[in-house]
């Protein structure tokens, strides 16, 4: 799919929707409406949006603790997601998952995941399921650079490659693993180089440049859909907020954050790209932002007005209690 003005506008709008959703979610923690923790995606929007732009509705995505952006990019409803963050019964998971477990199975969004690298094996498994059925669906697994240290990264990608499964492994390398700089705990700079161990292509792209992400994603997703096996994409990116709520951020400087925010912001970069091609007027830009803002406000209203789940909900959905064997 060539990137044209229409598609670019949709992607640009998705980036804004994620940016504003995240900023608002953060604000709602200050108001006490969102409790627990949040891992915000601001700064990394180009990755989720650039990848998901190529996905069919029936393709699968699996994510991480930092997956609000992935879910929105794959089409989860903002209302339901905000309600989930509020812990309300109208949430994507009826208030039983929260920020780290947002999932919408009706859109094959199999879920954020609170365990670093926890989605890699399961994403390989959804790919196996679709390969057995011959449906040419693609599975995408998002994970952070921290996940590349864990065993399931190795085991999952090994099997994905062994059986040439239709899966794309997307590493969002933001240079930090919680409060630790990647270089303090990693021995290779680029996660993409690790692909060589599994005999699959490894590509490193500038995750702030959505066009680069989009192009790499196209090749990887097409390859997977053709049955030629997985690709490991590394997107170099950066998170603007702390790792999660209450991060004192002593491990990085204000200047470093400002440098990325001011000079490497994925939304600004894409705006520049679109303006150069006359794909975006100032008016359209304003409209896109205003619409995203409205959607976010509506989502907050929806979440706010929704009820908490009834207390008996704590006791359901452990097992399917309706199920009986036809003995």
């Amino acid at each position: 799919m060539t990137l044209d003005g229409e598609l670019a506008k949709r992607m640009y709008s998705d980036m804004w929707r994620i940016r504003l959703f995240e900023e608002e979610a953060n604000r709602q923690t200050g108001l006490g409406n969102v409790v627990g923790t949040l891992h915000l995606y601001c700064g990394e929007e180009a990755v989720g949006v650039g990848i998901c732009a190529h996905l069919r509705d029936d393709d699968y995505i699996l994510g991480t603790h930092r997956s609000h952006g992935h879910c929105l990019a794959k089409g989860a409803l903002m209302d339901d997601m905000m309600a989930e963050l509020f812990g309300k019964e109208t949430g994507t998971c009826s208030g039983k998952g929260g920020s780290m477990h947002v999932a919408d199975l009706s859109k094959n969004i199999l879920g954020a995941n609170g365990i670093v690298a926890g989605g890699i094996g399961p994403a390989t498994g959804t790919a196996m399921a679709t390969k057995i059925r011959g449906t040419h669906q693609v599975s995408v697994c998002f994970f952070g650079d921290g996940a590349a240290a864990r065993g399931p990264f190795h085991e999952g990608i090994l099997m994905g490659s062994l059986w040439k499964l239709p899966v794309v492994y997307v590493c969002e390398n933001n240079g930090y693993q919680q409060w630790v700089r990647r270089e303090n705990v990693a021995v290779v700079d680029s996660v993409a180089t690790m692909a060589a161990s599994y005999g699959i292509p490894g590509v490193s792209v500038d995750g702030q440049n959505i066009v680069e992400v989009y192009e790499a994603a196209e090749e990887a997703i097409d390859r997977a859909r053709r049955g030629e096996g997985p690709t490991l994409i590394e997107a170099r990116t950066y998170r603007y907020f702390g790792h999660s709520l209450g991060d004192r951020e002593e491990y990085r400087t204000r200047e470093e954050v400002d440098e990325w925010r001011n000079n490497r912001d994925p939304i600004n970069i894409f705006r520049g790209y679109m303006s150069e091609r006359q794909w975006l007027t100032e008016r359209e830009d304003e409209e896109i932002q205003a619409a995203a803002k409205e959607d976010v406000a509506a989502a907050v209203k929806f979440a706010d007005e929704s009820a908490y789940p009834p207390l008996e909900a704590a006791h359901t959905d452990v097992l399917d209690t309706e199920w009986r064997v036809d003995a």
Binding site: L62, G121, P122, T124, M128, A129, P152, E155, M159
Partner: peptide, 14 residues
């Protein structure tokens, strides 16, 4: 083993 069970989980969810 982690890969085997992980793949099983995903395939089952699909």
């Amino acid at each position: 083993e982690a890969g085997i069970v992980g793949v099983g989980v995903g395939a089952a969810m699909a």
